[in-house]
Computed example of a mutant assay.
Amino acid sequence: MSEKVIADFVARFSLDTFDSPEPVRGRIVLSRKRLVLATADSKTTLPLSAIFDINVGQVPAELESFFQDTITIAYEDGNARRSAVIEAGSEEVSRFKTVLFKAQLSGSEARVKHPARVGGRVTDETFRPAKLRIEPGEVRFVGTETVTVDLASVTYFQRETREVGSVVAVRHTDEGQSVTSEFALATDRKLNLLGRYLRLEYSELAQQVENVDASEAEMEALVAIYSGGQSGDLAGMLGVDSSRVTMLLNDLREKGLIDEGARGLALTAQGKLLVSDRIETVNT
Protein backbone atom coordinates (compact mmCIF):
# COMPACT_ATOMS: atom_id res chain seq x y z
CA MET A 1 0.00 0.00 0.00
CA SER A 2 1.73 3.21 -1.19
CA GLU A 3 -0.56 5.79 0.46
CA LYS A 4 -0.16 6.87 4.08
CA VAL A 5 -1.39 4.34 6.66
CA ILE A 6 -3.61 5.90 9.36
CA ALA A 7 -4.46 2.74 11.33
CA ASP A 8 -2.64 -0.59 11.60
CA PHE A 9 -3.42 -3.21 14.24
CA VAL A 10 -4.04 -6.92 14.78
CA ALA A 11 -7.55 -8.17 15.54
CA ARG A 12 -10.03 -10.95 14.83
CA PHE A 13 -12.34 -10.48 11.86
CA SER A 14 -14.83 -12.31 9.71
CA LEU A 15 -16.04 -11.69 6.17
CA ASP A 16 -19.30 -13.03 4.81
CA THR A 17 -17.28 -14.33 1.86
CA PHE A 18 -15.58 -16.84 4.18
CA ASP A 19 -16.65 -20.48 3.94
CA SER A 20 -17.05 -20.49 7.73
CA PRO A 21 -18.38 -17.57 9.81
CA GLU A 22 -15.86 -18.26 12.56
CA PRO A 23 -13.47 -15.27 12.80
CA VAL A 24 -9.77 -15.41 12.04
CA ARG A 25 -6.90 -13.39 13.42
CA GLY A 26 -5.22 -10.99 11.07
CA ARG A 27 -3.96 -7.50 10.35
CA ILE A 28 -6.24 -4.49 9.83
CA VAL A 29 -4.67 -1.68 7.77
CA LEU A 30 -6.47 1.57 6.92
CA SER A 31 -5.41 4.37 4.58
CA ARG A 32 -7.43 7.30 3.27
CA LYS A 33 -8.34 5.24 0.20
CA ARG A 34 -8.84 1.65 1.33
CA LEU A 35 -9.22 -0.83 4.16
CA VAL A 36 -7.19 -4.05 4.02
CA LEU A 37 -7.94 -7.17 6.09
CA ALA A 38 -5.12 -9.68 5.78
CA THR A 39 -4.15 -13.06 7.17
CA ALA A 40 -1.12 -15.20 6.40
CA ASP A 41 -3.14 -16.85 3.60
CA SER A 42 -5.39 -14.11 2.21
CA LYS A 43 -5.91 -10.38 1.74
CA THR A 44 -9.19 -8.54 1.20
CA THR A 45 -9.13 -4.91 0.07
CA LEU A 46 -12.17 -2.67 0.49
CA PRO A 47 -12.10 0.72 -1.25
CA LEU A 48 -13.47 3.32 1.18
CA SER A 49 -15.80 4.48 -1.59
CA ALA A 50 -17.51 1.04 -1.42
CA ILE A 51 -18.36 1.33 2.30
CA PHE A 52 -21.93 2.49 2.88
CA ASP A 53 -22.46 1.79 6.58
CA ILE A 54 -20.43 1.45 9.77
CA ASN A 55 -21.89 0.19 13.03
CA VAL A 56 -20.56 -0.64 16.47
CA GLY A 57 -21.76 -3.45 18.71
CA GLN A 58 -24.17 -5.05 16.24
CA VAL A 59 -23.24 -8.07 14.15
CA PRO A 60 -25.18 -10.36 11.81
CA ALA A 61 -27.20 -12.94 13.76
CA GLU A 62 -25.10 -15.87 12.56
CA LEU A 63 -21.95 -14.25 14.04
CA GLU A 64 -23.29 -13.16 17.45
CA SER A 65 -21.84 -16.15 19.29
CA PHE A 66 -18.31 -15.41 18.00
CA PHE A 67 -17.82 -11.71 18.82
CA GLN A 68 -17.86 -9.24 21.74
CA ASP A 69 -16.62 -5.65 21.09
CA THR A 70 -17.09 -5.18 17.36
CA ILE A 71 -17.30 -2.79 14.45
CA THR A 72 -19.33 -3.97 11.45
CA ILE A 73 -18.57 -2.54 8.02
CA ALA A 74 -21.09 -2.91 5.21
CA TYR A 75 -19.74 -2.51 1.67
CA GLU A 76 -20.59 -3.06 -1.96
CA ASP A 77 -18.78 -5.77 -3.89
CA GLY A 78 -19.89 -5.44 -7.48
CA ASN A 79 -23.65 -5.96 -7.41
CA ALA A 80 -23.55 -7.66 -3.99
CA ARG A 81 -23.71 -6.13 -0.54
CA ARG A 82 -21.35 -7.69 1.98
CA SER A 83 -20.14 -7.15 5.52
CA ALA A 84 -16.93 -7.41 7.51
CA VAL A 85 -16.96 -7.73 11.32
CA ILE A 86 -13.85 -6.70 13.27
CA GLU A 87 -13.39 -7.52 16.96
CA ALA A 88 -10.93 -5.79 19.30
CA GLY A 89 -10.84 -4.23 22.77
CA SER A 90 -13.52 -1.63 23.45
CA GLU A 91 -11.05 1.28 23.44
CA GLU A 92 -9.43 0.06 20.22
CA VAL A 93 -12.84 -0.34 18.55
CA SER A 94 -13.80 3.19 19.64
CA ARG A 95 -10.55 4.68 18.29
CA PHE A 96 -10.80 2.77 15.01
CA LYS A 97 -14.44 3.84 14.58
CA THR A 98 -13.45 7.51 14.85
CA VAL A 99 -10.49 7.14 12.49
CA LEU A 100 -12.62 5.26 9.94
CA PHE A 101 -15.40 7.87 9.98
CA LYS A 102 -12.79 10.62 9.75
CA ALA A 103 -11.22 8.95 6.70
CA GLN A 104 -14.66 8.65 5.11
CA LEU A 105 -16.00 12.13 5.85
CA SER A 106 -13.32 14.70 6.68
CA GLY A 107 -12.74 17.06 3.77
CA SER A 108 -16.09 16.27 2.12
CA GLU A 109 -17.84 19.08 0.28
CA ALA A 110 -20.95 20.17 2.15
CA ARG A 111 -23.67 22.80 2.20
CA VAL A 112 -24.79 24.28 5.49
CA LYS A 113 -27.85 26.18 6.65
CA HIS A 114 -27.17 27.54 10.13
CA PRO A 115 -29.25 28.23 12.01
CA ALA A 116 -32.22 26.88 10.07
CA ARG A 117 -34.32 27.33 13.20
CA VAL A 118 -33.87 29.09 16.51
CA GLY A 119 -36.18 27.35 18.93
CA GLY A 120 -39.35 26.93 16.87
CA ARG A 121 -38.71 29.95 14.63
CA VAL A 122 -37.68 29.36 11.02
CA THR A 123 -34.88 31.71 9.92
CA ASP A 124 -34.16 33.18 6.49
CA GLU A 125 -30.67 31.65 6.30
CA THR A 126 -29.64 29.99 3.02
CA PHE A 127 -27.36 27.03 2.30
CA ARG A 128 -23.67 27.97 2.08
CA PRO A 129 -20.73 25.86 0.86
CA ALA A 130 -18.37 24.38 3.45
CA LYS A 131 -16.05 21.45 4.09
CA LEU A 132 -16.78 18.84 6.74
CA ARG A 133 -14.27 18.07 9.47
CA ILE A 134 -14.65 15.21 11.97
CA GLU A 135 -12.96 16.11 15.25
CA PRO A 136 -13.02 14.41 18.66
CA GLY A 137 -16.45 15.09 20.14
CA GLU A 138 -17.63 17.39 17.37
CA VAL A 139 -18.36 17.87 13.69
CA ARG A 140 -17.22 21.10 12.08
CA PHE A 141 -18.27 22.72 8.80
CA VAL A 142 -15.59 25.13 7.61
CA GLY A 143 -16.61 27.83 5.15
CA THR A 144 -17.00 31.60 5.14
CA GLU A 145 -18.33 30.99 8.65
CA THR A 146 -17.35 27.89 10.62
CA VAL A 147 -20.24 25.97 12.18
CA THR A 148 -19.27 23.60 15.00
CA VAL A 149 -21.68 21.08 16.46
CA ASP A 150 -20.62 19.75 19.86
CA LEU A 151 -21.93 16.18 19.77
CA ALA A 152 -22.71 16.32 23.50
CA SER A 153 -25.13 19.19 22.78
CA VAL A 154 -27.17 17.30 20.14
CA THR A 155 -30.74 16.51 21.20
CA TYR A 156 -32.31 15.45 17.89
CA PHE A 157 -31.35 14.62 14.32
CA GLN A 158 -33.30 13.40 11.33
CA ARG A 159 -32.93 13.05 7.59
CA GLU A 160 -35.20 15.44 5.71
CA THR A 161 -35.73 16.75 2.18
CA ARG A 162 -35.02 20.37 1.24
CA GLU A 163 -34.57 22.34 -1.98
CA VAL A 164 -30.93 21.19 -2.14
CA GLY A 165 -31.96 17.52 -1.78
CA SER A 166 -31.55 15.27 1.26
CA VAL A 167 -30.15 16.86 4.42
CA VAL A 168 -29.44 15.88 8.00
CA ALA A 169 -31.27 18.27 10.34
CA VAL A 170 -29.51 18.48 13.73
CA ARG A 171 -31.01 20.17 16.76
CA HIS A 172 -28.40 21.21 19.31
CA THR A 173 -27.64 23.91 21.85
CA ASP A 174 -25.54 26.86 20.75
CA GLU A 175 -24.63 29.54 23.29
CA GLY A 176 -27.53 28.48 25.50
CA GLN A 177 -30.11 28.45 22.70
CA SER A 178 -31.78 25.46 21.08
CA VAL A 179 -31.03 25.75 17.34
CA THR A 180 -31.45 23.48 14.34
CA SER A 181 -28.78 23.30 11.65
CA GLU A 182 -29.14 21.52 8.30
CA PHE A 183 -26.29 19.86 6.43
CA ALA A 184 -26.17 18.44 2.91
CA LEU A 185 -23.33 16.33 1.50
CA ALA A 186 -22.42 15.56 -2.09
CA THR A 187 -23.66 11.94 -2.06
CA ASP A 188 -26.34 9.93 -0.27
CA ARG A 189 -23.63 7.48 0.82
CA LYS A 190 -21.74 10.17 2.73
CA LEU A 191 -24.95 11.64 4.15
CA ASN A 192 -25.89 8.18 5.44
CA LEU A 193 -22.46 7.81 7.04
CA LEU A 194 -22.74 11.23 8.70
CA GLY A 195 -26.15 10.24 10.09
CA ARG A 196 -24.71 6.96 11.38
CA TYR A 197 -21.79 8.77 13.03
CA LEU A 198 -24.15 11.15 14.83
CA ARG A 199 -26.33 8.26 16.00
CA LEU A 200 -23.36 6.26 17.30
CA GLU A 201 -21.80 9.18 19.14
CA TYR A 202 -25.11 10.26 20.67
CA SER A 203 -25.98 6.70 21.73
CA GLU A 204 -22.58 6.27 23.36
CA LEU A 205 -22.97 9.47 25.38
CA ALA A 206 -26.58 8.68 26.27
CA GLN A 207 -25.54 5.28 27.64
CA GLN A 208 -22.88 6.93 29.79
CA VAL A 209 -25.37 9.32 31.42
CA GLU A 210 -28.34 6.95 31.54
CA ASN A 211 -27.71 5.92 35.12
CA VAL A 212 -26.45 9.29 36.37
CA ASP A 213 -28.75 10.61 39.08
CA ALA A 214 -28.36 14.40 39.33
CA SER A 215 -30.39 16.30 41.92
CA GLU A 216 -32.15 19.57 41.09
CA ALA A 217 -29.42 21.50 42.92
CA GLU A 218 -26.73 19.69 40.92
CA MET A 219 -28.57 20.44 37.66
CA GLU A 220 -28.75 24.13 38.58
CA ALA A 221 -24.99 24.08 39.24
CA LEU A 222 -24.34 22.40 35.87
CA VAL A 223 -26.42 25.03 34.05
CA ALA A 224 -24.55 27.79 35.89
CA ILE A 225 -21.17 26.31 34.90
CA TYR A 226 -22.39 25.89 31.30
CA SER A 227 -23.26 29.62 31.38
CA GLY A 228 -19.68 30.48 32.37
CA GLY A 229 -19.90 30.33 36.15
CA GLN A 230 -16.72 29.50 38.05
CA SER A 231 -16.17 28.36 41.65
CA GLY A 232 -16.13 31.90 43.03
CA ASP A 233 -19.34 32.86 41.22
CA LEU A 234 -21.54 29.89 42.01
CA ALA A 235 -22.58 30.82 45.57
CA GLY A 236 -24.15 34.04 44.30
CA MET A 237 -25.58 32.48 41.15
CA LEU A 238 -27.19 29.63 43.07
CA GLY A 239 -28.10 31.50 46.24
CA VAL A 240 -26.23 29.12 48.57
CA ASP A 241 -23.17 29.42 50.79
CA SER A 242 -19.64 28.48 49.75
CA SER A 243 -19.59 25.24 51.75
CA ARG A 244 -22.67 24.04 49.84
CA VAL A 245 -20.96 24.94 46.55
CA THR A 246 -17.92 22.85 47.56
CA MET A 247 -20.14 19.85 48.29
CA LEU A 248 -22.00 20.23 44.98
CA LEU A 249 -18.77 20.45 42.99
CA ASN A 250 -17.29 17.42 44.73
CA ASP A 251 -20.43 15.40 43.94
CA LEU A 252 -20.42 16.52 40.28
CA ARG A 253 -16.74 15.58 39.91
CA GLU A 254 -17.39 12.13 41.38
CA LYS A 255 -20.22 11.61 38.88
CA GLY A 256 -17.92 12.61 36.00
CA LEU A 257 -20.03 15.65 35.03
CA ILE A 258 -17.46 18.44 35.53
CA ASP A 259 -13.73 18.78 35.19
CA GLU A 260 -11.10 21.39 35.99
CA GLY A 261 -9.46 22.55 32.77
CA ALA A 262 -6.91 25.22 31.92
CA ARG A 263 -9.68 27.83 31.92
CA GLY A 264 -11.30 26.64 35.12
CA LEU A 265 -14.48 24.66 35.68
CA ALA A 266 -15.94 23.00 32.59
CA LEU A 267 -18.59 20.42 31.81
CA THR A 268 -17.56 16.98 30.60
CA ALA A 269 -19.35 15.54 27.56
CA GLN A 270 -21.76 13.78 29.92
CA GLY A 271 -22.43 17.02 31.77
CA LYS A 272 -23.06 18.85 28.51
CA LEU A 273 -25.58 16.21 27.45
CA LEU A 274 -27.52 16.57 30.71
CA VAL A 275 -27.58 20.37 30.33
CA SER A 276 -28.60 20.10 26.67
CA ASP A 277 -31.55 17.93 27.68
CA ARG A 278 -32.52 20.50 30.32
CA ILE A 279 -32.30 23.42 27.85
CA GLU A 280 -34.28 21.45 25.28
CA THR A 281 -37.03 20.75 27.84
CA VAL A 282 -37.21 24.44 28.80
CA ASN A 283 -37.34 25.58 25.17
CA THR A 284 -39.99 23.06 24.11
Score class of each variant (00 low, 15 high):
6 I>R: 02
9 F>N: 00
9 F>L: 03
11 A>M: 00
15 L>T: 03
15 L>E: 03
16 D>I: 05
19 D>C: 08
21 P>H: 05
22 E>K: 14
23 P>T: 06
25 R>I: 10
26 G>M: 00
26 G>Q: 00
35 L>T: 09
37 L>K: 01
38 A>N: 04
39 T>R: 02
39 T>F: 00
40 A>C: 14
42 S>H: 11
47 P>L: 04
50 A>V: 10
53 D>I: 05
57 G>I: 03
57 G>F: 01
60 P>M: 04
64 E>C: 14
66 F>C: 05
67 F>P: 04
68 Q>K: 14
71 I>Q: 00
75 Y>L: 02
76 E>C: 14
77 D>W: 07
81 R>Y: 14
82 R>I: 11
83 S>Y: 15
87 E>T: 00
90 S>V: 03
91 E>R: 04
91 E>D: 09
92 E>M: 03
94 S>F: 07
95 R>N: 00
99 V>W: 00
106 S>V: 03
108 S>W: 10
112 V>K: 09
117 R>K: 01
119 G>V: 08
120 G>P: 05
121 R>W: 14
122 V>Q: 12
122 V>R: 13
131 K>F: 10
131 K>Q: 12
132 L>S: 09
133 R>L: 14
135 E>N: 09
139 V>N: 00
140 R>D: 09
143 G>V: 03
143 G>A: 10
144 T>E: 14
145 E>F: 13
146 T>Y: 11
148 T>H: 01
148 T>L: 04
150 D>H: 07
150 D>C: 04
150 D>T: 04
152 A>D: 02
157 F>V: 01
160 E>C: 04
161 T>D: 03
165 G>K: 06
171 R>N: 07
176 G>M: 10
177 Q>C: 12
177 Q>T: 15
177 Q>K: 11
178 S>H: 15
179 V>R: 02
180 T>Y: 05
183 F>E: 00
184 A>M: 07
187 T>H: 06
188 D>R: 03
191 L>Q: 06
192 N>R: 05
193 L>M: 11
195 G>D: 11
199 R>K: 15
199 R>N: 10
200 L>M: 01
200 L>N: 01
202 Y>S: 13
203 S>F: 05
207 Q>W: 13
207 Q>R: 13
208 Q>V: 08
210 E>N: 09
211 N>G: 11
212 V>A: 05
214 A>N: 11
222 L>H: 04
222 L>D: 03
225 I>P: 03
236 G>H: 03
236 G>Q: 05
236 G>L: 05
237 M>I: 10
237 M>L: 15
238 L>V: 08
240 V>E: 01
241 D>W: 08
244 R>L: 08
247 M>W: 15
250 N>C: 08
252 L>N: 02
255 K>S: 13
256 G>I: 05
269 A>P: 07
272 K>H: 08
273 L>W: 05
276 S>C: 12
277 D>W: 15
282 V>Q: 15
